[in-house]
Design a protein around this nucleic acid. Structure first.
Length: 943
RNA sequence: CGCAAUGUAGCUCAAUGGCUAGAGCAGACGGUUGAUAACCGUCCGACGAAAGUUCGAUUCUCUCCGUUGCGACCA
């Protein structure tokens, strides 16, 4: 007979190298390095070589500043999509991109130059462009570093750059496509003009902010015969009263617009007769301090059509015009409380076709010129009497003063309202007519871009579904696309101006010719070479045969750049990618931005949308649901989170929230996520710890021989897995998270793991009882790793390595588990019933504990009384009930009423398994042990 | 001002035209000390506001309020 074993050492406690403490701050970078060394991204694609492709096309973030929480979220969501599709078996490449051109970088570089006392104009254009290029490259490298740190796998060494040769060589000819198809036209038109950046702004580049403007009511004397309006006005000194908050546009006034349907009153005030919309007379009279009761006539606005007025100080006629756009007062947005007035104006609108969209359209109808005596810098041109060279905003008070002096000013007050600002300069912009290049939405070779776009929108799948109408509405109402910018950091518009006859050359063949040069030299060639070195040999003006050309100076809108990616990237990298992509995934702001410009470019190139599906996410707001802004000081920095908690926490947060709406992010929320992370990690650790020495190839128990609760665990796992896979399928990562978290906490931690602990620790290592549990644990650990791999990229990879007999070098090479498909609903239902009874027992145990009857549950004996049916049901589990309740003894009695009684357990505590048994002490070799441990020890001795 | 989304416990999410609106976390209290900077249990806690439809609404309709995004206008 062998020596007795040391009891404590025969307990099979968990053991694993998968640490409890994650220490993500250090472990993540180490794992990233490992992935890089192993070329993990390339390996994953290799394993999917023959698989069907799934293309998520990356929208390029702007390569200017460091990443913020929004860009981090965006990239993480993309990574979820790419990794989950890859694990579904698709070949899912990820080619990240960067938007490199554009104003912010120019602004930045300009500021940097200024610090060195230099001006942009002091250095050659290409020197300036080189600095821009360097800046973009630096920003891009920083972003790449941070994105990689988030655990995002992709072709980070070869991202697409909108400033690269290849890319620019695609952008330029795509513009040629638009030309070929007859979409491109050149027009003079008022556009938002940023006088600080000296560039036209797209609608999308304008934001609104409150400013205080001078609100002036100005009298325009009637030039025509007053009696054509009403006989009562004959011989009177009639004046039209207009209202404006931009006095500086008055020098460009060419007309006055009235609404044909409104009533207008002629009111006698002293020796003048003022014409004001009837509804507004009282209002204006109060402000200007006249009684306004002397109404001489009342008439419809249409009566004023084509009459003539005199400009208040210039020798110029101002034409009376009719327009439905004329409203009564100011219905601008904003806080009504804060407004000086809810109503303002006179019902007569000062009209300067060079300074307003509506003005422009009305002016067009009446044949007015698009007059704009303001230069690029926002200064009046030489022809403007009294104010030449004056900056428009500074001229405002002087103009007011002039009008006050000559008596044409009726009223002047401060007026707070929302005014457009450049979204980059954050300064007020003006409306100003300039020559621009446009892409027409409503003309073209076959069908218009608008019509085709609307048709394509219907074919695309939108998630969330309201995206479709949002996109369609936007397309329906958007104006022509102004694609020219008066800047240098971008792709030039390849057009030439004949120096001799001013003919403008815009020719797709010429464009393709120049694009070939870009392919070799980047668009810098445009600035390095003369026009003659860019044009095809012997190119002559079609009008005058001149060979003397000047280069166009405008560049393309950056949205044109990024919109080209569906060609410049999806097609250029045809070996890995393809047109159209399966998915574009961006923030909701991109409906107007990239989704839109990409759609336009896709149609121009291939008559099709470049995406099959659009996913959008909301904005990251703070803990109270307010937007994050520097001024509020509520900004969460992704890099900070990564440093303090680890990328996994940020990723888990991204999975936990509903990304289709605005997402809250705060310290508390991240703390909760961290707790959840720990729970998941510990769950994995427990499973792995109990798999020590388990070889799935030889030690698995056949399903039929497994204990029922172990089969229940597998059935539950299968159910959870099914839900999670469905979640990935529908891009519903929140369901994935909720499901796995709930599974870990409820099914595993609180129930299964707690219950099987005794069995795993106490039974002999090779016993069927223990092997059965391990069989379930193995599948649980393996499946959880795979199912969570797209989200917790680091943790699951580490856990996967610690799975016994694991042959794959990374979980990311694996596929999602196949569902067992055995829907044992009876099993699940039976166990739900058992757990309901268990909950009752636990309640009573707690009462007994509070009454100091027991401490640990194992000190208890449970006496259940139940009805006949229930007791019969429970008798099937009679031997297991003590383990299920985690007590030492259970009795079941039949009775009409359900009842639970807790008593102190019989017998003594077994030193090995801590259960109470009346038989402790019976076994001579192991006196402190119980009968169960004695049996187990006998087996262990034979090992 | 228009369009859209959204508002369930401190946090992240569920469900439902009708029995006490689920769950996890957090919190309070306790147990355990063989998952131990872990684990288990008990308790506590919510339908933004008003009106309407209905026998009955958190769920349907409308209004209001809050939040967010987009847009128009501000001549």
């Amino acid at each position: 007979m062998s020596e007795p074993l040391e009891l404590k050492k025969t307990v099979n406690l968990p053991k694993t190298d998968f640490a409890q403490k994650a220490n993500l701050g250090q472990s993540e970078p180490a794992r990233l390095q490992k992935w890089t060394d192993a070329k993990l991204y390339e390996r994953i694609l290799e394993t999917r070589q023959t698989a069907e492709k799934f293309i998520l096309h990356d929208g390029p973030p702007y390569a200017n500043a460091d990443i913020h929480i929004g860009t981090a979220l965006n990239k993480i969501l993309k990574d979820f999509v790419v990794k989950s599709r890859s694990m579904m078996g698709f070949a899912a490449p990820y080619v990240p991109g960067y938007d490199c051109h554009g104003l912010p970088i120019e602004n930045y570089v300009e500021r940097e130059l200024k610090k060195k006392g230099k001006n942009k104009d002091d250095i050659p254009t290409n020197a300036f462009r080189r600095i821009c290029r360097e800046h973009a490259a630096t920003a891009m490298n920083n972003q790449t570093r941070d994105f990689k740190r988030l655990g995002i796998l992709g072709e980070w060494e070869t991202p697409y750059l909108t400033m690269s040769n290849e890319y620019e060589a695609e952008t330029a000819p795509l513009f040629g496509k638009y030309v070929e198809r007859g979409y491109v036209y050149r027009g003079a038109r008022p556009v938002y003009w940023d006088v600080y950046d000296q560039t036209a702004l797209a609608e999308a580049e304008v934001e609104y902010a409150d400013v205080v403007s001078p609100s002036v009511y100005v009298k325009f004397p009637l030039k025509s015969d007053a009696k054509t309006i009403d006989a009562a006005l004959e011989g009177k000194n009639v004046k039209f009263v207009i209202w404006t908050t931009t006095p500086w546009t008055l020098p460009a006034n060419l007309g006055i617009s009235v609404n044909p349907n409104f009533d207008y009153s002629a009111v006698e005030v002293g020796d003048e007769v003022l014409i004001i919309a009837t509804e507004l007379v009282k209002e204006v009279a109060e402000k200007a301090g006249f009684d306004g009761k002397q109404e001489l006539a009342r008439f419809k606005g249409e009566k004023l059509d084509k009459l003539e007025a005199k400009h208040p100080w210039l020798d110029r006629t101002s034409l009376l015009m009719l327009g439905e756009h004329v409203t009564l007062g100011d219905n601008s947005p904003g806080d009504d409380e804060q407004k000086t007035d809810k109503t303002a104006g006179t019902g007569l609108v000062h009209t300067a076709p060079g300074h307003g969209t509506d003005d422009f359209y009305v002016g067009q109808r009446y044949g007015l010129a698009v007059y704009c005596p303001v230069d690029n810098g926002g200064k009046f041109t030489a022809e403007v009497e009294f104010f030449a060279g004056e900056f428009v905003f500074k001229a405002n008070p002087k103009i007011v003063e002039l009008m006050r002096e000559n008596g044409s000013l009726l009223l002047h007050e401060d007026y707070k309202h929302r005014y457009p600002h450049g979204w980059r300069s954050h300064k007020p912009v003006i409306y100003r007519a300039t020559p621009q290049w446009f892409i027409s939405m409503d003309t073209g070779e076959n069908e218009s871009l608008r019509k085709q776009g609307l048709r394509e929108v219907e074919k695309v799948k939108w998630h969330p579904s309201w995206g479709e109408s949002r996109m369609a509405n936007m397309l329906k109402s958007r104006p022509d696309w102004c694609v020219s910018r008066q800047r240098v950091w971008g792709v030039p518009i390849i057009a030439f101006h004949c120096a001799d006859c001013s003919h403008v050359v815009i020719d797709s063949q010429v464009i393709y010719h120049v694009a070939d040069i870009f392919a070799a030299e980047t668009a810098d060639a445009w600035y390095n070479r003369e026009a003659s070195e860019l044009l095809p040999e012997n190119y002559k003006c079609v009008e005058c045969e001149s060979t003397n050309f000047a280069k166009e100076t405008d560049i393309l809108d950056v949205w044109f750049d990024s919109g080209s990616s569906c060609v410049a990237v999806l097609e250029t990298r045809g070996d890995t990618l393809r047109f159209p992509a399966d998915v574009y995934l961006e923030g909701g702001d991109q409906y107007r931005g990239w989704f839109n410009s990409s759609l336009m470019c896709g149609i121009a190139a291939h008559d099709a949308a470049p995406y099959k599906q659009i996913l959008t996410h909301g904005w990251v707001v703070d803990g109270e649901g307010r937007k994050q802004s520097k001024s509020l000081g509520n900004v969460t920095s992704p890099n900070e989170i990564v440093k303090q908690s680890g990328a996994e926490i940020l990723r888990l947060w991204a999975a936990a929230v509903d990304y289709t709406e605005d997402m809250r992010c705060s310290k508390e929320i991240l703390d909760r996520v961290t707790d959840a992370y720990r729970k998941i990690r510990n769950t994995l650790r427990y499973a792995l710890g109990n798999l020590e020495g388990f070889n799935p190839e030889t030690d698995k128990t056949a399903l039929a021989e497994m204990l029922e609760i172990d089969r229940w665990a597998l059935a539950s796992l299968d159910k959870a897995a099914e839900k999670m896979l469905k979640g990935y399928e529908t891009y519903d990562f929140q369901t994935v998270y909720q499901t796995i978290y709930n599974f870990c906490t409820v099914a595993l931690s609180a129930r299964y793991f707690d219950i099987i602990k005794d069995r795993l620790y106490i039974f002999a290592p090779h016993s069927v009882e223990r092997r059965s549990a391990q069989t379930a644990l193995y599948d649980i650990a393996d499946n959880l790793c795979r199912l969570l791999a797209p989200i917790l990229v680091f943790t699951t990879d580490e856990a996967f390595e610690n799975l016994p007999n694991q042959h794959l070098s990374s979980v990311h090479l694996a596929e999602f588990p196949k569902l067992a498909g055995v829907k044992d609903e009876k099993l699940l239902a039976d166990w739900e019933r058992i757990f309901t009874i268990r909950d009752e027992v636990l309640k009573k145990l707690e009462e007994a504990r509070n009454a100091k009857i027991i401490g640990s549950g194992l000190e208890a004996k449970v006496i259940l009384t139940t009805d006949k049916e229930t007791s019969r049901f429970l008798l099937n589990y009679y031997e297991d009930l003590r383990y299920i309740f985690i007590v030492s003894q259970v009795e079941v009695h039949e009775d009409e009423n359900f009842g639970v009684e807790i008593q102190k357990a019989d017998g003594a505590k077994c030193e090995r398994c801590w259960n109470y048994s009346v038989r402790v002490g019976e076994f001579a070799k192991y006196p402190p042990g119980c009968e169960r441990c004695f049996a187990a020890l006998n087996k262990i001795e034979k090992m």
